[in-house]
């Protein structure tokens, strides 16, 4: 596994949002949305980022694509540091990296037909003449399970699942290498969600895609991913291969998160040990000292308040940031 080629390397990525206040709109503090996280993504794999709302998983995705300019850190895409590239030349790099959003209702311009939506990326990057673009559009629409008769319609004429197919077609028409899926199936009904997940898997094989899958849904993540990173309050808590993480979670937060998923198997429900965490996620503009999870952690001890746990490889390919594993 580890010999596979690394496509994307994220090193010490930070994204702080200033909090402005007062009459003069001075910066009074920072929300550390992403606070020093590192990971790499390997070719053709699905790497997932999970966590609760406000943990910084979406911001990470957007910082990689520089839709939010990172505060600090490096992002290496095929060896090239994306942070050093000027804004205008970064626009050309965007064709290799695409983003698919959660909300299929607001992510498509309501005034453009499907055909125009799909042609826009090609024409923007001058990858095709209008005529060629139209041919590619027809091909792409069929690949995502829609038909050519849909081309002249507007987004509002489609259901949520179909719109998400359009979003996928629009992202993939540029033949990107890396696709970041930000809660891409979260807004969909169960019966539609599985259709889209199947489609994503099938397209990944066909186009040799690398996915970064951002989600709060641990069941979906388990199904789709090769490796999973668990985030909490802007930091990476644990990162491992999917099976290792689900079968043998190390971090107390991961354990609690997994136990909180409502079971769908009556037998499993009987003998499942549930950890119910106390309290809420702390305010990210005022995080606790030391380990960000310590206020809710059933295992917290004195050391957790004093120092931030190191992010270490506790087992082979299994990283964790917790004092319990760093004696």
């Amino acid at each position: 596994m580890s010999e596979e080629q690394v496509v994307l390397e994220v090193k010490h990525l930070k994204k702080y949002f200033p909090i402005k206040g007062g009459i003069l709109k001075r910066t009074q503090g920072h929300v550390k949305a992403v606070d020093d996280i590192s990971f790499d993504v390997r070719e053709n794999e699905t790497f997932s980022l999970v966590g609760e709302s406000g943990c910084g998983k979406s911001t990470t995705g957007r910082a990689i694509l520089r839709l939010h300019e990172p505060t600090d850190g490096d992002v290496l895409f095929n060896g090239e540091n994306l942070i050093d590239v000027s804004k205008s030349s970064f626009r050309h790099l965007r064709k290799d990296m695409q983003l698919i959003f959660q909300d299929p209702y607001s992510s498509l311009n309501p005034r453009m037909t499907v055909k125009k939506l799909l042609m826009e990326p090609l024409l923007t990057h001058k990858l095709a003449t209008p005529k060629e673009a139209e041919e590619k559009t027809v091909e792409m629409v069929e690949k995502v399970g829609l038909s050519t008769e849909h081309l002249d319609r507007y987004p509002h004429e489609f259901s949520g699942g179909q719109r998400q197919r359009i979003s996928i077609a629009r992202a993939l028409i540029l033949r990107p290498k890396l696709v970041i899926l930000d809660e891409a199936v979260s807004a969909l009904d169960v019966s539609i969600q599985s259709q889209i997940l199947n489609l994503l898997k099938q397209l990944q094989e066909e186009f040799q895609l690398t996915y970064i899958f951002i989600s709060h849904d641990l069941n979906v993540v388990k199904h789709l991913s090769d490796r999973v990173g668990v985030m909490y309050l802007g930091q990476m808590m644990e990162l491992a291969e999917t099976e290792a993480l689900y079968d043998n979670p190390l971090h107390p937060y991961t354990k609690a998160l997994l136990s909180a998923i409502p079971s769908i198997n009556p037998k499993e429900k009987e003998n499942k040990e549930r950890i119910i965490l106390q309290g809420d996620v702390p305010d990210p503009s005022d995080p606790p000292s030391g380990c960000p999870f310590r206020l809710r952690c059933p295992m917290a001890h004195d050391r957790c308040a004093e120092e931030i746990p190191r992010y270490i490889e506790a087992e082979r390919d299994h990283w964790v940031a917790c004092h319990l594993y760093d004696e």
């Binding site: 694509l65 839709l67 626009r91 695409q98 607001s106 311009n109 005034r111 990326p121 629009r170």
Partner: peptide, 26 residues
């Protein structure tokens, strides 16, 4: 605020074209 604007940015559309094609019609 709509994601289709971010989406257009993610595709690499330049700001002037985003304004003309995505903002003005809306």
């Amino acid at each position: 605020e709509n994601e289709y604007i971010t989406n257009a940015q993610a595709i690499g559309v330049r700001p002037s074209m985003i304004i003309i094609k995505h903002i003005i019609p809306n």
